[in-house]
């Protein structure tokens, strides 16, 4: 049960649910949650590869974990910025519906 494929499947499911989320939601915060799900799926995949795959000659054995850390860092930065934008948009339009953001181009 504990093997590479099972972890990859879990990561894949999280990623695809994230995609489903961002494709169907129109609320910006819900969209952000979808993105977080996708990032988690990918990070889990990296961690699984790191754990199970035999490293190539030049590759450091814990490179995969480094990637995960960077993904988490990026997610944090992205969430902070995204929420700042959302709050600002809300203050301006009283709404955070993505369709309304079209008005920004005017």
């Amino acid at each position: 049960m504990i093997n590479l494929q099972s972890f990859l499947v879990v990561g894949m499911i999280l990623f695809l649910l994230g995609i489903f989320g961002i494709l169907t939601r129109k609320n910006a915060i819900a969209l952000l949650m979808g993105i977080e799900l996708m990032l988690n799926g990918v990070a889990l995949t990296f961690a699984a590869f790191d754990r199970f795959i035999k490293p190539a000659e030049m590759v450091n054995p814990i490179d995969g974990k480094v990637f995960v850390i960077f993904i988490i860092i990026l997610a944090a930065a992205e969430a902070a910025i995204a929420l700042a934008i959302i709050i600002q948009v809300f203050g301006r339009y009283e709404d955070i519906n993505l369709e309304d953001l079209k008005r920004m181009k005017e």
């Binding site: 995609i19 961002i22 494709l23 129109k26 969209l31 993505l98 369709e99 953001l101 079209k102 181009k105």
Partner: peptide, 13 residues
């Protein structure tokens, strides 16, 4: 053309 984020997402994905 409409600049809808979701449409861009659909196209990209």
């Amino acid at each position: 053309q409409v600049g809808s984020v979701q449409a861009y997402l659909y196209i990209g994905i």
